[in-house]
């Protein structure tokens, strides 16, 4: 039953292949550059021997994984100075001037920022998926003619959309253990995941309800006269048609969630925002906000791209 109409599938078009090739090529180049960082020995060789001799017993060098080199030179404390080199992509740069120092700093911070970004993305994806799963039931409940189910789902959606996400997060992480130790969630990621899933469930439920109710009445009528049950009608006819209409608002919700995920820095879960703030305070520099925001933008752009593709993929029959 996988036969499709004639014509190209959107994900097979030349434009899509070209875009994919560019992204893959960029990733490959970045991987190669990162791999070919100079060894410690090579970087030591690039230091002027005069400087080392000049430094005498005050000379020391540090070499970190982040390919930064420090030398303290000068015969006494007053004339002590640092000479910093950075190796990147197979080349060695002298980074003593302000601008290059900043670049070196940014590269130094990148691994920590990427670690934070990993948490942010994982949390967003996991919570959105769990939220969508939950919201299908909430939406069906809200449409349901059963009064109790309907009221319960309505109240749930009202509560989670009507109160701040930050308070929901605090309540789950700090509040629940005080009600009963049994409810304590010690894993910060898990607590954040639960709070975000419950919250996005409420938002997505409204999106799904609207999408289901936007399907023409004739689809329900045709299903009914063909003898399909309500569950079959939903599963086979209505929900598959809603999916394409769901993608743009769900993408929007996903991107909102990605940025709302910065709230978890308030329970000290090391997401991108939390990492950025701690780097900023320990290095007493606000420079770190620039790469952090660029990382947010890159993630957003990537997922916007994915959702646009998905939407085209599900528009096949139109």
């Amino acid at each position: 039953m996988e036969q499709r109409p004639d014509g190209e599938k959107p994900y097979q078009t030349k434009k899509f292949r070209a875009t994919l090739a560019i992204i893959l090529a960029a990733l490959a180049v970045a991987a190669v550059f990162a791999a070919v960082k100079p060894s410690r020995g090579e970087m030591s060789l690039s230091l002027s021997e005069d400087l080392i001799a000049d430094a005498g017993d005050r000379y020391s060098e540090t070499y970190s994984d982040y390919v930064v080199f420090n030398i303290i030179r000068g015969k006494n404390v007053k004339t002590a100075a640092t000479d910093t080199f950075m190796g990147f992509a197979g080349r060695i740069y002298n980074v003593n001037d302000g601008f290059m120092t900043s670049i070196a700093d940014v590269i130094l911070w990148l691994p920590a920022l990427m670690g934070g970004a990993r948490i942010t993305v994982l949390l967003t994806i996991a919570a959105t998926f769990a939220g969508i799963f939950l919201s299908v039931f909430l939406a069906l409940g809200k449409i349901s003619k059963n009064k109790a189910v309907n009221k319960f789902c309505g109240a749930y959606i009202f509560f989670f959309r009507g109160s701040p996400l930050l308070m929901q997060l605090f309540f789950i992480y700090y509040g629940l253990p005080q009600i009963s130790p049994v409810l304590a969630i010690n894993n910060k990621f898990l607590a954040a995941f639960i709070a975000f899933s419950l919250n996005s469930g409420a938002y997505c439920a409204e999106i799904i309800r609207a999408a289901i109710q936007s399907i023409e009445k004739g689809q329900f009528e045709a299903s009914s006269v063909l003898g399909l049950t309500y569950a079959q009608t939903m599963r086979l006819i209505i929900i598959p048609q809603s999916i394409r209409r769901l993608i743009p608002p769900v993408a929007n919700e996903f991107i909102m969630m990605l940025k709302d995920a910065s709230l978890v820095s308030m329970i000290a879960l090391s997401d991108l925002t939390h990492v950025t703030r701690s780097i900023s305070s320990s290095a007493s520099s606000v420079l770190v906000y620039i790469p952090a925001m660029i990382i947010y933008l890159v993630i957003t752009a990537l997922f916007t791209f994915i959702f646009t593709r998905l939407e085209k993929r599900f528009s096949l029959y139109q």
């Binding site: 004739g218 045709a222 006269v225 063909l226 003898g227 399909l228 079959q232 048609q241 029959y317």
Partner: peptide, 29 residues
Amino acid sequence: LEMGMVFQSFNLFPHKTALENVMLAPIHA
């Protein structure tokens, strides 16, 4: 189900091919 109905606005299932439209109810109902 002894009655079959044809609508003014067709009401075919747009996400199914012609064949799938015809097969769906016999299989599921």
